[in-house]
C-alpha cells in the first residue's frame, strides 16, 4: 500500500476547476517532484492535501496509510503525519517560535497518546535541531517568522519539519526566494530527513532545487493534470526545453 495515494483528484476554487484528475502514489522512502509552469495547480494540489479551506474537492480520493485524508480537518491531517512546508510562511506577531513549536509538538504527542514534552527536553531538542540547520538558537525566542529573511523563514519551516517528523512532507516551492547558500542548507535539512518510512512531494518551478534534493520520480503538472512522468532526468529535460510542449498537448 502506498504511503500517500491520490486517486483521480479534482478540485475547484471559487467554482473554477483547477485540478482535473490527479493520480499519484508515493511509496515510503520515495521523493516525488512535481514541476510545472505557474498557474497549473501546483499550489492547489499542496493546499488540497493539507486541507486548506476554500478548495472544493469535487471528485477523487486521498489516502494516508489507507486512511481517508479528505475526511479530516487540516489539524487532524497534520497530526496524522502530513506536513506542508509553506511557500510563504506567515508572520505571526506576539507568538514566539518557541511557544509555537512546543504547542505543535505537544499536539502531535497527545494525539499519539504520549505525555507532553518536558520543558528541559524541549529546549535540548530545539538546541540540537537548530544546530544541525545552522540556525542561531536565539531565533526561537523571536515571534514566529516576524522579520525573518526569506532564507530564515524556509529554514524555520525545515526546523518545524525535523521536530514534527511527518510521514509525508510536501514542500511547496521551498526554493522560491532562496539564494544558493540558503538553498543548500535547506536541502541538506530535507535530505537528512529522508528515510525508508517517509515520503516527500517536492513542488517546484525550477530544476535547481532537484540538484540538491534528488527525486526518485518527476511529474509534469500542466493544466491540472499530470502530463508526463519520469525519472530525475525528466527535470533536466524540462530545464532545457521548457514546458511548452506539455501545455500544447494538454490544450
Amino acid at each position: 500500500m502506498a504511503l500517500l495515494e491520490i486517486k483521480n483528484l479534482h478540485a475547484s476554487v471559487a467554482g473554477k476547476e483547477i485540478l482535473k484528475g490527479i493520480t499519484l502514489a508515493l511509496e515510503p522512502g520515495e521523493v516525488h517532484a512535481i514541476m510545472g509552469p505557474n498557474g497549473t495547480g501546483k499550489s492547489t494540489l499542496s493546499n488540497v492535501i493539507a486541507g486548506r479551506e476554500g478548495y472544493e474537492v469535487t471528485k477523487g480520493e486521498v489516502y494516508l496509510d489507507g486512511k481517508d485524508v479528505l475526511d479530516m480537518a487540516a489539524d487532524e491531517r497534520a497530526r496524522a503525519g502530513i506536513f506542508l512546508a509553506f511557500q510563504y510562511p506567515v508572520e505571526i506577531p506576539g507568538v514566539t517560535t518557541s511557544a509555537f513549536l512546543k504547542t505543535a509538538l505537544n499536539a502531535k504527542r497527545r494525539a499519539a497518546g504520549q505525555p507532553e514534552i518536558d520543558a528541559m527536553d524541549f529546549l535540548k531538542l530545539v538546541k540540537a535541531k537548530t544546530a544541525v540547520l545552522g540556525m542561531p538558537y536565539d531565533m526561537i525566542k523571536r515571534p514566529l517568522n516576524v522579520g525573518f529573511s526569506g532564507g530564515e523563514k524556509k529554514r524555520a519551516e525545515v526546523l518545524q519539519m525535523t521536530m514534527l517528523e511527518p510521514r509525508v512532507a510536501i514542500l511547496d516551492e521551498t526554493d522560491s526566494g532562496l539564494d544558493i547558500d540558503a538553498l543548500k542548507v535547506v536541502s541538506e535539512g530535507v535530505n537528512s530527513l529522508r528515510s525508508p518510512e517517509r515520503a516527500f512531494l517536492v513542488i517546484t518551478h525550477y530544476q535547481r532545487l532537484l540538484d540538491y534534493i534528488v527525486p526518485d520520480h518527476v511529474h509534469v503538472l500542466a493544466n491540472g493534470r499530470i502530463a508526463a512522468s519520469g525519472g530525475k532526468e525528466l527535470a533536466l529535460e524540462l530545464e532545457a526545453e521548457g514546458y511548452a510542449k506539455y501545455l500544447n498537448t494538454a490544450a
Binding site: 486541507g51 479551506e53 489539524d75 497534520a78 506542508l84
Partner: peptide, 15 residues
C-alpha cells in the same frame, strides 16, 4: 486572520 489559523492547523494545532 484565517491564514494564521491555517498555518497553525497545518502544524497539528486544533482550532
Amino acid at each position: 486572520d484565517p491564514d494564521h489559523l491555517f498555518y497553525l492547523a497545518a502544524r497539528g494545532i486544533d482550532a
